[in-house]
Design a protein around this nucleic acid. Sequence first.
DNA 1: GACATTCGTTTAATATATTAGCCGAGATGA
DNA 2: TCATCTCGGCTAATATATTAAACGAATGTC
Lengths: 203, 203
Amino acid sequence: MSDEFRRAHGGDKSHETNDDDLPKIGERLKSLRKMYGFSQRELAKRAGVTNGTISLVEQERISPSIGSLKKVLDGFPISMTDFLTLDLAPKRKVFYAGKDMKEIASGGDISFKLVGKITQDRKIQMLHEHYQPGADTGEEMLSHAGEETGIVVSGELVLTVGGDTRVLLAGEAYYFDSLLPHRFRNLGQSECVVVSACTPPSF
Amino acid sequence: MSDEFRRAHGGDKSHETNDDDLPKIGERLKSLRKMYGFSQRELAKRAGVTNGTISLVEQERISPSIGSLKKVLDGFPISMTDFLTLDLAPKRKVFYAGKDMKEIASGGDISFKLVGKITQDRKIQMLHEHYQPGADTGEEMLSHAGEETGIVVSGELVLTVGGDTRVLLAGEAYYFDSLLPHRFRNLGQSECVVVSACTPPSF
DNA sequence: GACATTCGTTTAATATATTAGCCGAGATGA
DNA sequence: TCATCTCGGCTAATATATTAAACGAATGTC
């Protein structure tokens, strides 16, 4: 079993989220409003408040009440918590496409390809996994909190999670909590291809 | 395009009818305060507000400003978003395997199967998507914050994200922020199969 | 019983948020 | 040029949140 695999399936704690401060209500609102192309008056009308309120909130000259902030956010299809956790500053790459994937574990009979090459500042990590006949990851020990899911695209996968073992054929799927120990094996005759995703990214 | 698809890819506007999106500020606060065994005055002192404010907020006779709610919550080791999403986490199934997937959009030329049948209390939503030739989701209105990724398993997918259009062949992948408008089309001759994942789940 | 303490609530005064309406700047057309 | 939009910001009036200080009810002590 490779170190790469260990990390890929949840062995690293480098991903941490800081939601201790929730400032910049005005900046968030302005950013969101611009994304939708609304004017202050337009949003005010949707939200049932006045444009002056929107203006003052965006300038952070007032701290809106929960109730009125909720009214304003109802002008968008977005929830309060999503608004408060909205990523605003990082102008990172928001779109990725193509074959340009990073090879995670190239040696041996297991191959992982990571969608998008990096996971930093991302919430999901998706892998394209290829298991040759006989491939075995060994049992993973626990890792940080998170969840992991996948679909078997072709071949046959023997999956052991928390003492429970199942055989998954093409078209079948799994979902488990990353805290549970887990093991992937290909005991079949042909290559097994799996698409998996976990959150948060493990490296 | 079905309603199910709209929700699956982020068009759910159920936020608009949310009186229960962030209700019970008072109830939440009281519950939290009791959990820590604080009296109203004790919490008020920690938070830098008066006991009267705590009392009125708990009775939901006033809607506190963002600023003062934040001050109050600073009296606890809890973040604003954690406070707003405070819920009893029911014991749930932590492992799922097999073909037992829920059909999301059965009608038309698009088929979605959801891994695990439910998304409640889960962090990832994985879909097995089948697009018949000519299938088109149309442009999605943007929705809640989150991220979305996928791999094309077979066939050919035309993906438009935020004004940028790309053609993805089998083995290629995408990754984008759910806030961006997006559209999936199969302009090829054969069926297109995609495995996608998004976080958080959209329904 | 009399007194002191603490609890959550209430009330009048004050601070702040929100409104309704107006302002000047920039665009658009006739 | 002039008129007419819409944009975001601003100000006085009003509504609401927050404070400071009281209240009545429990509880405990001497």
